[in-house]
Design a protein around this nucleic acid. Structure first.
Length: 459
RNA sequence: GUCCCGUUCGUCUAGAGGCCUAGGACACCGGGUUUUCAUCCCGGCAACAGGGGUUCGACUCCCCUACGGGAUGCCA
Protein backbone atom coordinates (compact mmCIF):
# COMPACT_ATOMS: atom_id res chain seq x y z
CA UNK A 1 0.00 0.00 0.00
CA UNK A 2 1.49 3.29 -1.09
CA UNK A 3 0.99 6.67 0.46
CA UNK A 4 1.70 9.63 -1.77
CA UNK A 5 1.25 13.33 -1.41
CA UNK A 6 0.97 16.47 -3.44
CA UNK A 7 2.78 19.31 -1.71
CA UNK A 8 2.10 22.62 -3.45
CA UNK A 9 3.22 25.97 -2.21
CA UNK A 10 0.27 28.32 -2.43
CA UNK A 11 2.04 31.09 -4.29
CA UNK A 12 -0.11 30.97 -7.40
CA UNK A 13 -3.14 29.34 -8.95
CA UNK A 14 -3.16 25.62 -9.59
CA UNK A 15 -0.81 25.08 -12.49
CA UNK A 16 -1.44 22.53 -15.20
CA UNK A 17 1.95 20.93 -14.45
CA UNK A 18 0.98 20.73 -10.81
CA UNK A 19 -2.21 19.00 -11.78
CA UNK A 20 -0.21 16.37 -13.62
CA UNK A 21 2.04 15.82 -10.61
CA UNK A 22 -0.99 15.51 -8.35
CA UNK A 23 -2.64 13.17 -10.83
CA UNK A 24 0.33 10.80 -11.00
CA UNK A 25 0.56 10.79 -7.23
CA UNK A 26 -3.14 10.09 -6.92
CA UNK A 27 -3.18 7.32 -9.51
CA UNK A 28 -0.08 5.65 -8.13
CA UNK A 29 -1.47 5.49 -4.62
CA UNK A 30 -4.93 4.38 -5.71
CA UNK A 31 -3.68 1.48 -7.75
CA UNK A 32 -2.06 0.11 -4.65
CA UNK A 33 -5.18 0.72 -2.61
CA UNK A 34 -3.26 3.38 -0.74
CA UNK A 35 -3.73 6.98 0.27
CA UNK A 36 -3.28 10.26 -1.50
CA UNK A 37 -2.60 13.28 0.71
CA UNK A 38 -2.22 17.00 0.27
CA UNK A 39 0.17 19.17 2.19
CA UNK A 40 0.28 22.91 1.80
CA UNK A 41 3.86 24.14 1.92
CA UNK A 42 3.31 27.69 3.02
CA UNK A 43 6.55 28.34 4.85
CA UNK A 44 7.25 31.25 2.54
CA UNK A 45 5.08 33.74 4.41
CA UNK A 46 5.74 36.50 1.94
CA UNK A 47 4.31 34.80 -1.12
CA UNK A 48 1.83 32.29 0.28
CA UNK A 49 -1.80 33.24 0.01
CA UNK A 50 -4.88 31.55 1.36
CA UNK A 51 -6.81 32.17 -1.86
CA UNK A 52 -4.25 30.22 -3.85
CA UNK A 53 -4.48 27.37 -1.42
CA UNK A 54 -8.23 27.27 -1.90
CA UNK A 55 -7.85 27.44 -5.65
CA UNK A 56 -5.45 24.50 -5.62
CA UNK A 57 -7.51 22.27 -3.41
CA UNK A 58 -10.84 23.02 -5.06
CA UNK A 59 -9.30 22.60 -8.50
CA UNK A 60 -8.08 19.13 -7.66
CA UNK A 61 -11.40 18.34 -6.05
CA UNK A 62 -13.17 19.30 -9.27
CA UNK A 63 -10.99 16.88 -11.17
CA UNK A 64 -11.77 14.11 -8.73
CA UNK A 65 -8.28 14.15 -7.25
CA UNK A 66 -9.42 14.28 -3.66
CA UNK A 67 -7.16 13.75 -0.68
CA UNK A 68 -7.94 10.91 1.69
CA UNK A 69 -7.26 13.05 4.72
CA UNK A 70 -7.74 16.72 5.49
CA UNK A 71 -4.84 18.65 3.96
CA UNK A 72 -2.28 19.89 6.43
CA UNK A 73 -0.61 23.26 6.43
CA UNK A 74 3.04 23.66 7.32
CA UNK A 75 2.56 27.08 8.82
CA UNK A 76 0.50 25.46 11.57
CA UNK A 77 3.10 22.87 12.47
CA UNK A 78 6.03 24.96 13.61
CA UNK A 79 6.11 23.34 17.04
CA UNK A 80 6.57 19.96 15.40
CA UNK A 81 9.54 21.16 13.38
CA UNK A 82 10.88 22.78 16.49
CA UNK A 83 10.85 19.45 18.32
CA UNK A 84 12.55 17.74 15.41
CA UNK A 85 15.18 20.46 15.43
CA UNK A 86 15.83 19.92 19.11
CA UNK A 87 16.31 16.24 18.47
CA UNK A 88 18.89 17.03 15.84
CA UNK A 89 20.70 19.41 18.11
CA UNK A 90 20.88 16.97 20.97
CA UNK A 91 22.01 14.16 18.71
CA UNK A 92 24.75 16.40 17.40
CA UNK A 93 23.42 16.40 13.87
CA UNK A 94 22.70 20.10 13.79
CA UNK A 95 24.51 23.19 14.96
CA UNK A 96 24.05 26.93 15.21
CA UNK A 97 25.80 29.17 12.77
CA UNK A 98 26.15 32.93 12.99
CA UNK A 99 27.35 33.73 9.52
CA UNK A 100 25.50 36.71 8.13
CA UNK A 101 24.05 36.72 4.63
CA UNK A 102 26.84 39.11 3.72
CA UNK A 103 29.48 36.68 5.00
CA UNK A 104 27.95 33.95 2.90
CA UNK A 105 27.75 36.14 -0.14
CA UNK A 106 31.43 36.91 0.15
CA UNK A 107 32.28 33.26 0.68
CA UNK A 108 30.48 32.30 -2.49
CA UNK A 109 32.15 35.00 -4.48
CA UNK A 110 35.58 33.83 -3.41
CA UNK A 111 34.76 30.24 -4.26
CA UNK A 112 33.35 31.18 -7.63
CA UNK A 113 36.48 33.15 -8.37
CA UNK A 114 38.51 30.03 -7.71
CA UNK A 115 36.27 28.03 -10.02
CA UNK A 116 34.80 26.06 -7.16
CA UNK A 117 31.24 25.20 -6.44
CA UNK A 118 29.85 27.92 -4.21
CA UNK A 119 28.76 26.39 -0.95
CA UNK A 120 28.82 26.95 2.75
CA UNK A 121 32.18 25.80 4.08
CA UNK A 122 31.03 24.63 7.50
CA UNK A 123 33.13 27.15 9.37
CA UNK A 124 30.76 27.29 12.37
CA UNK A 125 30.36 23.57 12.59
CA UNK A 126 32.71 22.91 15.47
CA UNK A 127 32.42 26.25 17.19
CA UNK A 128 29.77 25.03 19.61
CA UNK A 129 27.77 28.24 19.17
CA UNK A 130 24.61 28.81 21.16
CA UNK A 131 21.36 29.95 19.69
CA UNK A 132 21.18 33.72 19.56
CA UNK A 133 19.43 36.44 17.67
CA UNK A 134 21.16 36.00 14.36
CA UNK A 135 21.92 32.33 14.29
CA UNK A 136 20.55 29.78 11.89
CA UNK A 137 20.40 26.06 12.56
CA UNK A 138 22.37 23.97 10.09
CA UNK A 139 22.45 20.28 9.45
CA UNK A 140 25.84 18.64 9.87
CA UNK A 141 25.97 16.58 6.69
CA UNK A 142 28.45 13.81 6.04
CA UNK A 143 31.65 15.18 4.52
CA UNK A 144 32.58 12.03 2.68
CA UNK A 145 30.93 9.13 0.95
CA UNK A 146 28.03 9.28 -1.40
CA UNK A 147 24.28 9.36 -1.27
CA UNK A 148 22.28 7.25 -3.65
CA UNK A 149 18.83 8.19 -4.75
CA UNK A 150 16.93 5.25 -6.08
CA UNK A 151 14.54 6.78 -8.53
CA UNK A 152 11.62 4.69 -9.74
CA UNK A 153 11.79 6.31 -13.15
CA UNK A 154 15.50 7.01 -13.60
CA UNK A 155 17.22 4.33 -11.60
CA UNK A 156 20.14 5.05 -9.30
CA UNK A 157 21.39 8.60 -9.09
CA UNK A 158 24.63 9.00 -7.20
CA UNK A 159 25.70 12.17 -5.44
CA UNK A 160 29.00 12.73 -3.81
CA UNK A 161 28.47 14.04 -0.29
CA UNK A 162 31.30 16.49 -0.74
CA UNK A 163 29.08 18.32 -3.21
CA UNK A 164 26.54 19.10 -0.56
CA UNK A 165 26.90 21.73 2.10
CA UNK A 166 25.33 22.09 5.53
CA UNK A 167 21.90 23.32 4.72
CA UNK A 168 19.83 25.61 6.88
CA UNK A 169 17.07 23.98 8.90
CA UNK A 170 15.86 26.96 10.90
CA UNK A 171 16.22 30.53 9.72
CA UNK A 172 17.49 33.24 12.02
CA UNK A 173 13.89 34.22 12.72
CA UNK A 174 13.28 30.68 13.91
CA UNK A 175 11.09 29.57 11.00
CA UNK A 176 11.84 26.23 9.37
CA UNK A 177 12.95 25.87 5.76
CA UNK A 178 11.49 23.87 2.92
CA UNK A 179 13.80 20.85 3.05
CA UNK A 180 13.35 20.41 6.75
CA UNK A 181 9.55 20.66 6.83
CA UNK A 182 9.29 18.50 3.79
CA UNK A 183 11.18 15.64 5.39
CA UNK A 184 9.49 15.90 8.77
CA UNK A 185 6.06 16.01 7.19
CA UNK A 186 6.61 13.14 4.80
CA UNK A 187 7.48 11.06 7.82
CA UNK A 188 4.61 12.38 9.90
CA UNK A 189 2.10 11.79 7.16
CA UNK A 190 3.34 8.28 6.59
CA UNK A 191 4.32 8.98 3.01
CA UNK A 192 6.00 6.04 1.28
CA UNK A 193 6.61 7.44 -2.17
CA UNK A 194 7.58 10.91 -3.22
CA UNK A 195 6.50 11.71 -6.76
CA UNK A 196 7.43 15.21 -7.83
CA UNK A 197 8.99 17.28 -10.57
CA UNK A 198 12.41 16.63 -11.97
CA UNK A 199 13.55 19.97 -10.63
CA UNK A 200 13.74 18.32 -7.22
CA UNK A 201 16.31 15.69 -8.13
CA UNK A 202 19.24 17.56 -6.69
CA UNK A 203 17.26 18.36 -3.57
CA UNK A 204 16.79 14.72 -2.82
CA UNK A 205 20.20 13.84 -1.37
CA UNK A 206 19.89 16.80 0.98
CA UNK A 207 16.58 15.55 2.17
CA UNK A 208 17.93 12.06 2.59
CA UNK A 209 20.57 13.47 4.88
CA UNK A 210 17.93 15.07 7.05
CA UNK A 211 15.98 11.82 7.09
CA UNK A 212 18.99 9.86 8.20
CA UNK A 213 19.85 12.34 10.91
CA UNK A 214 16.31 12.04 12.19
CA UNK A 215 16.33 8.25 11.94
CA UNK A 216 13.46 8.17 9.52
CA UNK A 217 12.99 5.26 7.13
CA UNK A 218 13.98 5.71 3.52
CA UNK A 219 11.41 6.75 0.98
CA UNK A 220 10.80 5.81 -2.62
CA UNK A 221 11.30 8.58 -5.14
CA UNK A 222 10.10 9.22 -8.63
CA UNK A 223 11.00 12.39 -10.48
CA UNK A 224 8.64 13.33 -13.24
CA UNK A 225 9.82 15.04 -16.42
CA UNK A 226 8.93 18.69 -16.71
CA UNK A 227 6.20 20.16 -18.86
CA UNK A 228 7.58 22.56 -21.44
CA UNK A 229 6.21 25.25 -23.72
CA UNK A 230 6.62 25.23 -27.50
CA UNK A 231 10.07 26.78 -27.26
CA UNK A 232 11.12 23.96 -24.91
CA UNK A 233 11.33 26.27 -21.96
CA UNK A 234 9.40 25.59 -18.81
CA UNK A 235 5.74 26.09 -19.45
CA UNK A 236 4.78 29.60 -18.47
CA UNK A 237 2.17 32.20 -19.23
CA UNK A 238 4.23 33.26 -22.19
CA UNK A 239 3.45 30.05 -24.06
CA UNK A 240 -0.10 29.26 -23.17
CA UNK A 241 -2.55 29.40 -20.38
CA UNK A 242 -1.05 27.64 -17.39
CA UNK A 243 -3.76 27.55 -14.77
CA UNK A 244 -6.24 24.75 -14.49
CA UNK A 245 -9.01 27.33 -14.35
CA UNK A 246 -8.04 28.62 -17.76
CA UNK A 247 -8.52 25.18 -19.31
CA UNK A 248 -11.76 24.71 -17.47
CA UNK A 249 -12.98 28.02 -18.82
CA UNK A 250 -11.86 27.11 -22.32
CA UNK A 251 -14.41 24.34 -22.28
CA UNK A 252 -12.39 21.25 -21.49
CA UNK A 253 -14.02 18.68 -19.26
CA UNK A 254 -12.28 17.18 -16.30
CA UNK A 255 -12.07 13.87 -18.14
CA UNK A 256 -10.29 15.62 -20.99
CA UNK A 257 -7.85 17.38 -18.72
CA UNK A 258 -6.97 14.22 -16.84
CA UNK A 259 -6.65 12.20 -20.03
CA UNK A 260 -4.55 14.76 -21.83
CA UNK A 261 -2.26 15.43 -18.89
CA UNK A 262 -1.68 11.74 -18.24
CA UNK A 263 -0.50 11.46 -21.82
CA UNK A 264 2.20 14.01 -21.17
CA UNK A 265 5.15 11.86 -20.22
CA UNK A 266 3.29 8.61 -20.11
CA UNK A 267 1.66 6.51 -22.79
CA UNK A 268 -0.59 3.55 -23.28
CA UNK A 269 -2.09 1.66 -26.16
CA UNK A 270 -5.58 3.07 -25.92
CA UNK A 271 -5.04 6.79 -25.72
CA UNK A 272 -8.53 7.75 -24.68
CA UNK A 273 -9.36 6.70 -21.14
CA UNK A 274 -11.06 7.69 -17.91
CA UNK A 275 -9.66 7.90 -14.40
CA UNK A 276 -10.39 4.33 -13.38
CA UNK A 277 -8.88 2.95 -16.56
CA UNK A 278 -5.84 5.09 -15.89
CA UNK A 279 -5.56 3.73 -12.38
CA UNK A 280 -5.66 0.24 -13.81
CA UNK A 281 -3.04 0.62 -16.49
CA UNK A 282 -0.70 3.29 -15.15
CA UNK A 283 2.90 2.23 -14.60
CA UNK A 284 5.28 4.67 -13.02
CA UNK A 285 8.14 2.80 -14.64
CA UNK A 286 6.73 3.72 -18.04
CA UNK A 287 6.92 7.41 -17.39
CA UNK A 288 9.17 9.19 -19.84
CA UNK A 289 12.49 10.57 -18.64
CA UNK A 290 12.61 13.50 -21.02
CA UNK A 291 10.55 16.64 -20.62
CA UNK A 292 7.40 16.92 -22.70
CA UNK A 293 6.19 19.86 -24.73
CA UNK A 294 2.62 20.85 -24.03
CA UNK A 295 0.55 20.81 -27.22
CA UNK A 296 -2.89 22.37 -27.27
CA UNK A 297 -3.76 20.60 -30.53
CA UNK A 298 -3.48 17.29 -28.81
CA UNK A 299 -5.58 18.63 -25.97
CA UNK A 300 -8.26 19.50 -28.49
CA UNK A 301 -8.18 16.07 -30.00
CA UNK A 302 -8.52 14.39 -26.61
CA UNK A 303 -11.39 16.74 -25.92
CA UNK A 304 -13.25 15.80 -29.09
CA UNK A 305 -12.80 12.12 -28.25
CA UNK A 306 -13.91 12.52 -24.67
CA UNK A 307 -16.94 14.59 -25.62
CA UNK A 308 -17.93 11.96 -28.15
CA UNK A 309 -18.09 9.40 -25.36
CA UNK A 310 -20.71 11.35 -23.47
CA UNK A 311 -24.36 10.39 -23.85
CA UNK A 312 -26.84 13.16 -24.62
CA UNK A 313 -27.83 13.90 -21.05
CA UNK A 314 -24.24 13.95 -19.84
CA UNK A 315 -23.41 16.30 -22.68
CA UNK A 316 -26.22 18.69 -21.75
CA UNK A 317 -24.90 18.72 -18.22
CA UNK A 318 -21.36 19.67 -19.11
CA UNK A 319 -22.27 22.26 -21.71
CA UNK A 320 -24.93 23.97 -19.62
CA UNK A 321 -22.63 26.49 -17.93
CA UNK A 322 -21.11 27.43 -21.27
CA UNK A 323 -24.57 27.94 -22.76
CA UNK A 324 -25.37 30.17 -19.81
CA UNK A 325 -22.24 32.16 -20.50
CA UNK A 326 -23.55 32.78 -24.00
CA UNK A 327 -26.78 33.96 -22.44
CA UNK A 328 -28.75 30.90 -23.53
CA UNK A 329 -31.01 29.19 -21.02
CA UNK A 330 -32.28 25.68 -20.93
CA UNK A 331 -35.84 26.76 -21.59
CA UNK A 332 -34.95 28.35 -24.92
CA UNK A 333 -36.81 26.85 -27.88
CA UNK A 334 -35.22 23.66 -29.18
CA UNK A 335 -32.39 24.05 -26.67
CA UNK A 336 -31.44 20.39 -26.61
CA UNK A 337 -31.99 19.68 -30.29
CA UNK A 338 -29.78 22.58 -31.27
CA UNK A 339 -27.02 21.46 -28.96
CA UNK A 340 -27.14 17.96 -30.35
CA UNK A 341 -27.06 19.26 -33.89
CA UNK A 342 -23.94 21.30 -33.10
CA UNK A 343 -22.21 18.77 -30.86
CA UNK A 344 -19.44 17.74 -33.18
CA UNK A 345 -18.90 21.15 -34.74
CA UNK A 346 -16.04 22.10 -32.42
CA UNK A 347 -13.63 20.38 -30.08
CA UNK A 348 -14.46 22.07 -26.80
CA UNK A 349 -17.58 23.09 -24.91
CA UNK A 350 -17.07 26.81 -25.06
CA UNK A 351 -16.70 26.82 -28.83
CA UNK A 352 -19.65 24.52 -29.30
CA UNK A 353 -21.85 26.69 -27.11
CA UNK A 354 -20.71 29.73 -29.03
CA UNK A 355 -21.49 28.03 -32.33
CA UNK A 356 -25.15 27.66 -31.36
CA UNK A 357 -25.62 31.42 -31.17
CA UNK A 358 -27.14 31.92 -34.63
CA UNK A 359 -30.01 29.72 -33.50
CA UNK A 360 -30.78 31.85 -30.49
CA UNK A 361 -29.82 35.38 -31.44
CA UNK A 362 -30.28 37.73 -34.35
CA UNK A 363 -27.53 37.59 -36.93
CA UNK A 364 -24.97 40.34 -36.72
CA UNK A 365 -24.16 40.10 -40.42
CA UNK A 366 -23.38 37.66 -43.19
CA UNK A 367 -20.10 35.95 -43.93
CA UNK A 368 -18.53 38.02 -46.72
CA UNK A 369 -17.15 35.19 -48.78
CA UNK A 370 -20.43 33.36 -48.60
CA UNK A 371 -22.27 36.44 -49.77
CA UNK A 372 -20.11 36.95 -52.82
CA UNK A 373 -19.93 33.29 -53.69
CA UNK A 374 -23.54 32.24 -53.14
CA UNK A 375 -25.92 34.85 -51.86
CA UNK A 376 -25.66 37.54 -54.52
CA UNK A 377 -26.72 35.22 -57.31
CA UNK A 378 -29.55 33.60 -55.40
CA UNK A 379 -32.35 36.10 -55.38
CA UNK A 380 -34.65 33.96 -57.48
CA UNK A 381 -33.86 30.78 -55.62
CA UNK A 382 -34.52 32.35 -52.26
CA UNK A 383 -37.74 33.93 -53.44
CA UNK A 384 -38.95 30.64 -54.73
CA UNK A 385 -37.87 28.79 -51.60
CA UNK A 386 -39.58 31.33 -49.44
CA UNK A 387 -42.80 30.86 -51.34
CA UNK A 388 -42.59 27.12 -51.29
CA UNK A 389 -41.69 26.86 -47.62
CA UNK A 390 -44.43 29.21 -46.58
CA UNK A 391 -46.91 26.65 -47.83
CA UNK A 392 -45.56 23.83 -45.73
CA UNK A 393 -47.74 22.83 -42.83
CA UNK A 394 -45.78 19.86 -41.50
CA UNK A 395 -42.58 21.70 -40.51
CA UNK A 396 -40.19 18.82 -39.97
CA UNK A 397 -36.91 17.69 -41.43
CA UNK A 398 -38.40 15.11 -43.77
CA UNK A 399 -40.92 17.49 -45.32
CA UNK A 400 -38.36 20.24 -45.53
CA UNK A 401 -35.87 18.03 -47.31
CA UNK A 402 -38.52 17.24 -49.89
CA UNK A 403 -39.22 20.92 -50.35
CA UNK A 404 -35.54 21.66 -50.83
CA UNK A 405 -35.31 19.00 -53.50
CA UNK A 406 -38.24 20.62 -55.21
CA UNK A 407 -36.44 23.94 -55.26
CA UNK A 408 -33.38 22.33 -56.71
CA UNK A 409 -35.37 20.51 -59.37
CA UNK A 410 -37.33 23.58 -60.31
CA UNK A 411 -34.15 25.49 -61.13
CA UNK A 412 -32.26 22.39 -62.12
CA UNK A 413 -29.37 23.43 -59.91
CA UNK A 414 -26.75 21.43 -58.04
CA UNK A 415 -27.66 21.10 -54.39
CA UNK A 416 -25.10 23.53 -52.95
CA UNK A 417 -26.42 26.29 -55.19
CA UNK A 418 -29.68 26.01 -53.33
CA UNK A 419 -28.50 25.06 -49.87
CA UNK A 420 -25.59 27.41 -49.37
CA UNK A 421 -27.51 30.65 -49.88
CA UNK A 422 -30.17 29.25 -47.61
CA UNK A 423 -27.58 28.56 -44.95
CA UNK A 424 -26.23 32.08 -45.21
CA UNK A 425 -29.73 33.42 -44.85
CA UNK A 426 -30.38 31.30 -41.78
CA UNK A 427 -27.13 31.20 -39.82
CA UNK A 428 -25.07 33.84 -41.58
CA UNK A 429 -22.47 31.47 -43.00
CA UNK A 430 -22.20 28.37 -45.15
CA UNK A 431 -21.69 26.21 -42.11
CA UNK A 432 -24.68 24.61 -40.45
CA UNK A 433 -26.11 21.20 -39.72
CA UNK A 434 -28.05 19.41 -42.42
CA UNK A 435 -30.25 22.09 -43.97
CA UNK A 436 -33.56 20.31 -43.42
CA UNK A 437 -32.70 19.97 -39.77
CA UNK A 438 -31.51 23.56 -39.58
CA UNK A 439 -34.84 24.78 -40.94
CA UNK A 440 -36.72 22.55 -38.55
CA UNK A 441 -34.74 23.92 -35.62
CA UNK A 442 -35.48 27.50 -36.57
CA UNK A 443 -39.17 26.85 -36.98
CA UNK A 444 -41.32 28.12 -39.79
CA UNK A 445 -41.73 31.70 -38.73
CA UNK A 446 -38.09 32.35 -37.99
CA UNK A 447 -36.92 30.54 -41.12
CA UNK A 448 -39.15 32.56 -43.40
CA UNK A 449 -38.18 35.75 -41.64
CA UNK A 450 -34.49 35.14 -42.17
CA UNK A 451 -34.90 34.17 -45.80
CA UNK A 452 -36.85 37.35 -46.30
CA UNK A 453 -34.12 39.39 -44.69
CA UNK A 454 -31.54 37.82 -46.96
CA UNK A 455 -33.68 38.66 -49.99
CA UNK A 456 -33.89 42.24 -48.83
CA UNK A 457 -30.16 42.25 -48.25
CA UNK A 458 -29.49 41.24 -51.84
CA UNK A 459 -32.06 43.60 -53.26
C1' G B 1 32.31 27.24 -13.09
C1' U B 2 30.81 22.61 -10.45
C1' C B 3 27.27 18.63 -9.70
C1' C B 4 22.86 16.20 -11.47
C1' C B 5 19.06 14.87 -15.20
C1' G B 6 17.86 14.42 -20.19
C1' U B 7 18.19 13.93 -26.06
C1' U B 8 13.55 8.68 -31.40
C1' C B 9 9.10 12.07 -36.90
C1' G B 10 6.91 19.45 -36.13
C1' U B 11 4.40 17.43 -31.25
C1' C B 12 3.11 13.14 -27.70
C1' U B 13 5.40 8.53 -27.93
C1' A B 14 6.56 2.57 -28.98
C1' G B 15 11.16 0.37 -28.74
C1' A B 16 14.51 -3.47 -22.38
C1' G B 17 20.97 -6.08 -28.46
C1' G B 18 18.72 -9.28 -33.80
C1' C B 19 11.13 -9.09 -34.34
C1' C B 20 13.30 -2.07 -37.06
C1' U B 21 12.73 -1.47 -44.38
C1' A B 22 12.24 2.22 -36.68
C1' G B 23 5.62 1.21 -35.08
C1' G B 24 1.31 4.26 -33.32
C1' A B 25 -1.24 8.92 -32.23
C1' C B 26 -1.84 14.36 -32.90
C1' A B 27 -0.90 18.04 -36.46
C1' C B 28 -0.21 18.64 -41.66
C1' C B 29 -1.12 17.12 -46.94
C1' G B 30 -4.06 14.09 -50.46
C1' G B 31 -8.45 10.98 -51.37
C1' G B 32 -13.37 8.88 -50.01
C1' U B 33 -18.30 9.43 -47.44
C1' U B 34 -21.66 13.85 -46.77
C1' U B 35 -26.47 19.03 -49.26
C1' U B 36 -22.02 22.82 -46.40
C1' C B 37 -18.91 22.33 -41.98
C1' A B 38 -17.57 18.83 -38.52
C1' U B 39 -17.53 13.66 -37.66
C1' C B 40 -15.99 9.06 -39.87
C1' C B 41 -12.83 5.97 -43.32
C1' C B 42 -8.40 5.34 -46.51
C1' G B 43 -3.53 6.98 -48.01
C1' G B 44 0.96 10.12 -47.67
C1' C B 45 4.91 13.14 -45.48
C1' A B 46 8.23 12.82 -41.47
C1' A B 47 12.77 10.85 -36.48
C1' C B 48 17.05 7.28 -33.58
C1' A B 49 21.76 14.83 -31.73
C1' G B 50 27.22 13.86 -33.38
C1' G B 51 31.65 10.91 -32.74
C1' G B 52 34.13 6.86 -30.80
C1' G B 53 34.03 2.04 -28.64
C1' U B 54 31.83 -3.12 -26.92
C1' U B 55 29.49 -7.01 -29.98
C1' C B 56 28.81 -11.60 -35.26
C1' G B 57 24.99 -7.62 -34.68
C1' A B 58 23.32 -1.53 -31.68
C1' C B 59 17.73 3.14 -31.31
C1' U B 60 18.85 -0.19 -27.40
C1' C B 61 25.22 -1.18 -23.45
C1' C B 62 29.93 2.08 -22.34
C1' C B 63 32.80 6.71 -23.16
C1' C B 64 33.39 11.62 -25.16
C1' U B 65 31.29 16.02 -27.44
C1' A B 66 27.18 19.15 -28.47
C1' C B 67 22.61 20.93 -27.10
C1' G B 68 18.49 21.51 -23.51
C1' G B 69 17.00 21.51 -18.40
C1' G B 70 17.72 21.50 -13.04
C1' A B 71 20.60 22.44 -8.53
C1' U B 72 24.25 25.40 -6.50
C1' G B 73 19.06 30.67 -1.71
C1' C B 74 18.02 32.39 5.72
C1' C B 75 12.41 30.37 -2.20
C1' A B 76 9.58 26.14 -2.59
Amino acid sequence: MKVTRFAPSPTGNLHIGGVRTALFNYVFSKQSGGLFLIRVEDTDRERSKREYEEDIISGLEWLGISPDKTPIRQSERYDIYQRAAERLISSGNAYWCDCSPEDLEEMRKEQAALGKKPMYDGRSRDLGLKKSENTVLRLATPLEGETIVNDLIRGEIIFSNSELDDLILLRSDGTPTYHFCNVVDDYDQGVTTVIRGEDHISNTPRQIHIQKALDYPELEYAHLPLVLGEDKKRLSKRHAATSLNAYKEMGFTKETIINALALLGWSTENEIFLMDELIESFKLQNVQKAAAVFDLKRFNWVSSQQLAKLNDEAFFDVIKPFMKDEGINEDSTNYKKIILAMRTSKTNLKDIAHATRPFFFELDGYDEKGVSKFLNESLETLNFAHELLSKITEWNETELDIALINVRDYFNLPIPKVNQPMRIALVGSTVSPSLGLTLELFGKEKSLERIKKAIEFIG
